[in-house]
Design a protein around this nucleic acid. Sequence first.
RNA 1: AACCCCAUGGUGUAAUUGGCAACACAACUGGUUUUGGUCCAGUCAUUCCAGGUUCGAGUCCUGGUGGGGUUACCA
Length: 579
Amino acid sequence: MPASNSGSKAQSGAPRDFIRTIVDADMKAGKNNGAVHTRFPPEPNGYLHIGHAKAICINFEIAAERSGLCNLRFDDTNPVKEDVEYVDAIKDDIAWLGFDWGDRLYFASDYFGRLYELSEQLVEQGDAYVDSCNSDEIRELRGDTTVEGKAGPYRDRAPAESLDLLRRMRAGEFEDGAHVLRAKIDLTSPNINLRDPIIYRIRHVEHHRTGNDWCIYPMYDWAHGLEDSFEGITHSLCSLEFENHRPLYDWFLSKLGVHHPQQIEFARLNLSFFVMSKRHITTLVEKGAVSGWDDPRLPTLRGLRRRGYTPGSIRSFCREIGVAKFNSTVELVKLENELRSDLNANAQRRLAVLDPLELVVTNWPEGKVDMVPAINNHEDESAGTRDVPFSGRLYIERADFMEEPPKKFFRMAPGREVRLRYGYYVTCTGVEKDEATGEVTRVLCEYDPESRGGNTADERKVKATMHWVSVDHAGDAELRLYDNLFQVPNPMKFKKGKTLLDNLNPNSLTVQHAKVEPSLMDAQPGFTCQFERTGYFTVDTVDSKSGAPVFNRAVSLRDSWAKVEKQAANQAAQRAKKK
RNA sequence: AACCCCAUGGUGUAAUUGGCAACACAACUGGUUUUGGUCCAGUCAUUCCAGGUUCGAGUCCUGGUGGGGUUACCA
């Protein structure tokens, strides 16, 4: 199970939404014997992203909350687009999220035989016929939203003749495209899906699971409802774009007189600063804008996982955003908030200096090393402490020292006393500079031997507590600081002649070399911790090596000092403008 | 263009089904703090518009406006 305190705050009762309301009403009315059974039905043609996570959470959680079941079913009806590689990746991602489909792993391809038999029944009933028009002719005859469809020459083909042709299609007597099986519904329907939709098409293609057993493959509309029916699904939850397919879903099931689940549609997830569609993510991968499908800047589950997102944070995010039929865009900060909330409670703290500046403690005894205890997690006492070496030469953050500090700057400055976290109070006594550039190369200070651990007997206050790492004990680590992949909230909005790529953020990845406390040098891939005062980092699962760790920044800490700085900068700019 | 769906703070969702618009995030104030983190307190909408029904409308009706989906031998 994922380490998580997910749901710790959304405590105002169980989630409520229109789907849960329908399901509960059905159960109360005794429909389906009062049971609920859902399914998550991906096509194995790509990797899952956080939008899929929303659907996964909805299906698995609605069932679990009501002691029901949720199946995992691969909708592998189109062999030209699918592959086992994706089957394995999808299973892995769902399990990582923490959901268990038990022994209920199904494939549409396992139903090919039953699906075919029912199609013969439909033909015998006179509800389907074999059409021998080619795809252009079919499209032409079907019309469009302004033009009514017209019957083609084969629509009134006798059932016996259609049945014979269907059997020969199945037997492989025809080339791709020679015939199709179509439902006989209504060519004049304003809903195009009802204008004699295709049920089977001929495709002499090897299927990743059934090999060459079949040369006709069922279309989504034919397969999906029946799969739901076979599995005893009670509520078939899908996204809004299938709304217009529901009449067809219902038509097939009622014509066949089989178990009839209820299809309910909900809005897909949109997240600001991200693109969710497979097509666009593919573009990013192919154009080299990202390193692959598991790039930590991508909203793919593999990317988020590598970035340092926890399963619990994704699940609580999905719970928080709710379910509705309105096409909305959730702010990225909402997701980040869930991650911070999870990690704040569960991640251990470590000391790491991202942009090192040397600090010399001039009154520190030569050669002395003091192992000071550092608290692993203030939010979780059971996480205990660890000892960190403190010595006379330290690294501090360059941004934590200013020779001429502005008003609200609390950190180190000449003459000022600050606390080095878990260490000692130190007072800045001077600086050393590069004579040519004027850049500060070292900061000098004196420590108070009575302040070990960060407290003094006289309880005098300091305004800042800073993190540090001992120079002689520090390890070198590569840090990958991620920012939004796109620089605009809606990357799909671009001017004529421009593309998605023009909205990329050129600074979405910054690589830095940091000084880290010794314990971090053998951190295991996937280990996630907070670098105190900077952010949450996770050891990269691809490029990190023992002794040469690589850390990905999952998310930074909230930084109210940055806001103060920004405000000050804005005010200064405005003042300059006035002059 | 036709058909279908949708519309509640800056964002995402609630509202016991016609009865005081709630929660989370964001933003802003202030307090606490050995992380400028966390935590705590406070501020921030009369529900797209116009009519109607009603003692009473976010909720029901009519008409607008705006947004999304569909028009594949993909799912």
